[in-house]
């Protein structure tokens, strides 16, 4: 079983976000970058498939040179090799452009499975997986929490509103991962040492260059402006006798906030 896992290099979820001088992107100074959380689940699941069925796990990322650090991190977890489609402009490109760049690296691998995260921190869009599936002409199952593989077919379980949707399909296929029951493993010291020697290929985007996409019709999608969420001025604090506090709370919710 050959599995390609797409991992995105993103700001740590603990990072405090400040708006950059252009007003449309974040100020990255001092921000730690990591593998996007759902992509870590995807790597963990890929390693488990390889452990059970044999095969190879190949990591692919698209973006700036620094994304090599996240690829090394994934190699340290246990993946076999990695490919970076390197172009810093891809970090700010729309999902279709990023998916095209990823497709260029994934296609020649002819994998049995392609794994992505349900969505990537930052854009928080969750578009790249389904788009990549369309570009690669693969069936896909999105936001999957559990996957069963058989000879040439799969069953995927995804949580939807009020139920679990069970999908059946044929391989090869693309799966985007939700959180699963398997906490992503830590890289061991041995893993980290081994990762330094594993192959990490760097290539340039060809047809999917962001410049090309910005060509005659300009970008497909523009981030015009970035704002911090309206600081929710910590509201009213109620304290004291529990009976009185509750009565006052319910009165406020009914008369002031009008939500009950």
């Amino acid at each position: 079983m050959k599995i390609v896992v797409c991992i995105k290099h993103v700001p740590d979820t603990e990072a405090r976000i400040r708006i950059g001088p252009d007003g449309a992107s974040i100020d990255e100074a001092g921000i730690k970058m990591v593998i996007s959380p759902y992509d870590e689940f995807a790597v963990e699941e890929a390693l488990r498939v390889r452990e059970a069925a044999g095969g190879e796990v190949v990591l692919v990322s698209a973006g700036r040179e620094a994304a090599q650090a996240s690829l090394r991190q994934g190699l340290a977890m246990g993946a076999d090799r990695a490919v970076l489609v390197q172009d810093a402009r891809l970090d700010f490109a729309d999902a279709l452009t990023r998916a095209r760049a990823l497709a260029e690296a994934v296609r020649p691998e002819a994998p049995d499975l392609v794994f992505c995260g349900k969505y990537g921190v930052g854009t928080d869009e969750g578009q790249t997986g389904p788009i990549l599936a369309e570009l690669l002409d693969l069936p896909h199952a999105g936001a999957v929490a559990r996957l069963e593989l058989r000879e040439g077919t799969f069953t995927a379980y995804r949580g939807i509103e009020g139920a679990v949707e069970v999908l059946e399909g044929r391989l090869p296929a693309l799966v985007t991962w939700d959180k699963t029951d398997h906490e992503p493993r830590y890289a061991s010291l041995k893993g980290i040492m081994a990762a330094k020697k594993k192959p990490l290929a760097v290539r340039s985007p060809v047809g999917a260059s962001p410049a090309h996409d910005r060509g005659e019709s300009s970008a497909r999608l523009t981030w015009e402006r970035l704002e911090l969420p309206p600081a929710r001025q910590g509201g009213r604090i109620l304290e004291g006798d529990p009976d009185e506090v509750v009565r006052e709370l319910v009165r406020l919710l009914r008369e002031e906030a009008k939500v009950i």
Binding site: R16, G122, D124, R220, L221, T222, L226, E227, P229
Partner: peptide
């Protein structure tokens, strides 16, 4: 909402 709700983006297409 972007960056896990830590910022709000105005996007256009």
């Amino acid at each position: 909402s972007v960056y896990s709700g830590k910022a709000i983006a105005w996007v256009s297409a």
